[in-house]
Amino acid sequence: MICPRCGEENLEGIDRCSNCMEPLRDRDVPQPTRGLQRLIMEEPVSAISSSAPVVVAPHATVAEAVRRMREGRIGCVLVVENDLLVGVFTERDVLMKFAGTDKNLDESKVTDVMTRSPEKVETTKTLRFALNKMSVGGFRHIPITDQGRLTGIVTAKDALKFIAREALYKGEAQESED
C-alpha cells in the first residue's frame, strides 16, 4: 500500500502510514466497488430485464407458442401451470424439433416438446450470477422468479444492451464532457 500523502511504501493491511501516520485503514480495501464493475456484481437481475415474459399453458399448441414468440419479439416462451413455471420452449427447440419436418404444429402440444425444470434465477440475485448461468449453460433466456412465482425474464440481449449503455455510450458522454 503506497501512502497517498507521502508516497511511502507500507506493508499490506497496515493501519497507518509508517512514515507520516496518515490513516490507511479505509483505503486498503479491494476496489471493484466503482462504476460498472460494481453494477454487475450488485445490481439485481430484475433491474436489467427489459421484456415481459411470454407465457403459455402446457396444453397450448406449438403453433400458438410460435405465434406468441413472433408477436412478443422474443426467442423463448415460458410454460406455466398453476402459477408455477414448468418448462420453456425456445427458438432452438423450433430449429431442432420442427424446422424442416412435416410435423403439424397445430397437433403438437408444448408440454410434449418443452424443456422441463428450466434454470431460473431469484429476483434478488445479481447480474453477475445471471451472466454466469447464461455462460455456463449456454442459455440466452433465464426466467426470473420470486419464491418460485414467475416475475420476469432476463435475456442475453438485455445483458448486451446494459453493457453497451453503461460501458460504451455512458463513458463516451463523459469523455466528451471532459
Binding site: 453477475r128 451472466l131 454466469n132 455462460s135 440466452r140 442475453a156 445483458a159
Partner: peptide, 13 residues
C-alpha cells in the same frame, strides 16, 4: 454470437 460476449463478461471478473 451474443453467447461469446456473455461468456467474456462472465469471465471478466
Amino acid at each position: 454470437s451474443i453467447q461469446h460476449i456473455i461468456g467474456f463478461l462472465a469471465e471478466l471478473f
